[in-house]
């Protein structure tokens, strides 16, 4: 397609083979996957130059895990060991939901810094900038969950089910995060600066994760709050994760989670894709 010869300044000008004038009118599916992979690589390699981000999605969840276990554990569950068993699945869920905000922040950054303009002027799949970002964020999410589980193990948490159940827990959390990501994408496309994604996220995701049974038993809360906790999808996901990792019901919370994920994605994915298409 192109040769590696070029005319350096000062050299005699000569004909250089230019970009191919013909070719297919659109991007093939295999090519599109390759573009997505390249843009995922781009998001992941950014970590190398931005230690703050590493801190954000590695150290922060571990700190939360330690603080909740040792500061609140005794008070809430009588012993840190019992609390860890109850709260680790909830902490994994909470951390994952907060991290979905990064998808919106990253997209908004690309938008405001003009990186999208550059990408859009290239002959690549239109969906690749969005898909690449989401794939990279899911990789980071998986990493964070695995790390939390690893630290939990050191602190005494044990998976009492099988490896397949544990994998299913991972998959369920990531799937739910993917659904929530569409809301994050939508916000990222609509707000004028990256910081505003965080503001939006905190006003929505903070109450959503705390008014659930992620950290404490539903029965300890006042009745009116229990009503919300019981229908909160975070409760369903936390219960499903507990069931899949240690003990408790599995089928019902898993179904609830899947239904919620499908519902959230059905609402936000079209809105987000539409907003994305209008921006890019």
């Amino acid at each position: 397609m192109s040769t590696l010869t070029t005319t350096l300044p000062g050299q005699a000008p000569g004909p250089v083979e230019r970009a191919a004038p013909t070719g297919p009118a659109r991007v093939g599916p295999i090519e599109g996957l390759r573009h997505t992979a390249t843009l995922s690589w781009r998001s992941l390699v950014q970590i190398k130059h931005n230690p703050m981000e590493l801190l954000d999605f590695s150290v922060q969840p571990l700190m939360f895990l330690l603080l909740f276990t040792y500061v609140f554990g005794g008070a809430i569950a009588g012993s840190t060991g019992d609390y860890l068993t109850f709260a680790l699945p909830g902490l994994m869920v909470q951390n994952t939901l907060f991290t979905t905000l990064n998808t919106g922040v990253g997209l908004n950054n690309d938008l405001t810094k003009g990186v999208f303009d550059r990408l859009r002027s290239l002959p690549i799949a239109r969906s690749a900038p969005l898909a690449g970002r989401i794939v990279a964020d899911m990789v980071k999410q998986t990493w964070a969950i695995a790390m939390m589980l690893g630290l939990g193990y050191i602190l005494g948490f044990r998976v009492r089910t099988g490896p397949l159940d544990a994998l299913a827990a991972f998959g369920l959390i990531i799937l739910f995060a993917l659904a929530i990501s569409w809301a994050s994408v939508l916000v990222g496309m609509l707000v004028s600066e990256p910081e505003k994604v965080m503001v939006f996220g905190f006003t929505l995701i903070f109450p959503l994760t705390f008014i659930s049974n992620a950290f404490v038993q539903t029965s300890t809360m006042p009745g009116w709050l229990q009503a919300f906790v019981k229908i909160n999808p975070v409760t369903a996901l936390a219960d499903a994760t507990r069931g899949l990792l240690s003990s408790g019901p599995v089928a019902t919370p898993v179904w609830h989670t899947l239904l919620w994920a499908a519902g959230i994605a059905a609402v936000f994915a079209p809105l987000a894709v539409n907003a994305f298409k209008r921006k890019v």
Partner: peptide, 17 residues
């Protein structure tokens, strides 16, 4: 798509990552 294969664009604001 065919146009994008033959053009290059440098915007008013440097759009590098």
């Amino acid at each position: 798509h065919r146009v994008r294969r033959i053009v290059g664009l440098t915007g008013q604001y440097a759009s590098v990552d």
